[in-house]
């Protein structure tokens, strides 16, 4: 079992209930897409899994451990195995790409290695390998503030690839990428998870991207799970219901149906888009 949430609720200090009665289980190696309108609670759910927050009620277990009951050392050990891709990559602008990527393994490196690597990057080939997978090998020694938003987002993904986490969490990992690159990058994350048997939980804005790349789709609305189905069983009606508050259109990768790549457009999506 890779993650298990039982009756989890999360209420913020200002009284806003972000999550309510969430129960979700996933086996090691599963790939799950979280979809739903903005403000539905996708990010809150991911921060629970990332052990960044503790639930107000219910129980969260991640990688066979309950973060709430762990001491500092054990929690650190657990967190080493969790990698997160953020929508806005939390990387200092002045850091070089190579350093930002190598920082993915700081949890595994001993202290001296982390300090030494600030003076001379200790695993340049390793950093280059993961950067090549996101098409950024040429930016290895560039500074992060020289990159575009999309490039920086891919550096964040390269860092998680380098970390080799057992649980990969991704919060809108491709929001700053163009459609073709977004598709390739999400596939990269899924392939990475499958090849290493890691669990992947990604929140995605584009429904078609979720349906075409992930086997299991969890729809979230107003802090609750609206549906939890294999991608093939997600119907148009379920999607329309999920996004009812966002107007007529479903959020798609390519806003113009004509240009949506055929590989992405599953039946349901093509029909709703047209």
């Amino acid at each position: 079992m890779s993650l298990a949430l039982a009756g989890v609720g999360l209420t913020y200090a200002n009284g806003f209930a972000a999550l309510d009665g969430i129960s979700l289980r996933a086996d090691q190696g599963e790939c799950i897409a979280l979809i739903g309108p903005s403000g539905a609670g996708k990010t809150s759910l991911l921060s629970l899994l990332a052990t960044a927050m503790a639930p107000s009620v219910g129980e969260v277990a991640v990688l066979a451990a309950t973060p709430a009951g762990l001491g500092a050392a054990a929690l650190k050990k657990l967190r080493r195995r969790i990698g997160t891709v953020y929508q806005a990559p939390p990387i200092p602008g002045r850091q070089r790409v190579v350093t930002a990527v190598l920082a993915g393994r700081l949890g595994q490196w001993p202290l001296w290695q982390g300090i030494a690597s600030l003076f001379y990057p200790l695993d340049v080939p390793g950093a280059r390998r993961v950067l090549a997978r996101v098409d950024l090998a040429d930016k290895l020694f560039a500074r992060c503030d020289e990159l575009s938003g999309g490039q920086l987002q891919r550096v964040g993904i390269a860092r998680v690839l380098y970390q080799q986490a057992d649980l990969i969490l991704a919060d809108e990992p491709v929001s700053a990428l163009d459609p073709a690159l977004a598709l390739a990058t999400v596939r990269l994350l899924v392939d990475e998870a499958k090849s290493r048997g890691a669990t992947l939980v990604a929140s995605l804005h584009a429904v078609d991207l979720a349906l075409s790349c992930f086997s299991r789709i969890v729809g979230i609305k107003a802090g609750q799970i609206a549906f939890d189905r294999p991608a093939g069983e997600v119907s148009e009606a379920m999607l329309s219901e999920l996004y009812a508050s966002e107007g007529q259109e479903l959020p798609m990768l390519a806003t113009e149906p004509r240009f949506s790549p055929p590989a992405v457009a599953t039946d349901v999506v093509t029909r709703t888009a047209c």
């Binding site: 990332a50 052990t51 960044a52 929690l75 650190k76 050990k77 657990l78 967190r79 080493r80 195995r81 969790i82 990698g83 997160t84 953020y86 806005a88 939390p90 990387i91 200092p92 850091q95 350093t99 920082a103 993915g104 700081l106 949890g107 595994q108 490196w109 202290l111 982390g114 300090i115 600030l118 970390q163 986490a165």
Partner: peptide
């Protein structure tokens, strides 16, 4: 900005390294 340091601590990086890198 606290995000870089926090993100590192969330993947198990000890405080001193999170400070140096984030």
């Amino acid at each position: 900005p606290a995000a870089p340091g926090r993100a590192l601590r969330l993947c198990g990086v000890p405080g001193s390294l999170a400070f140096l890198y984030g």
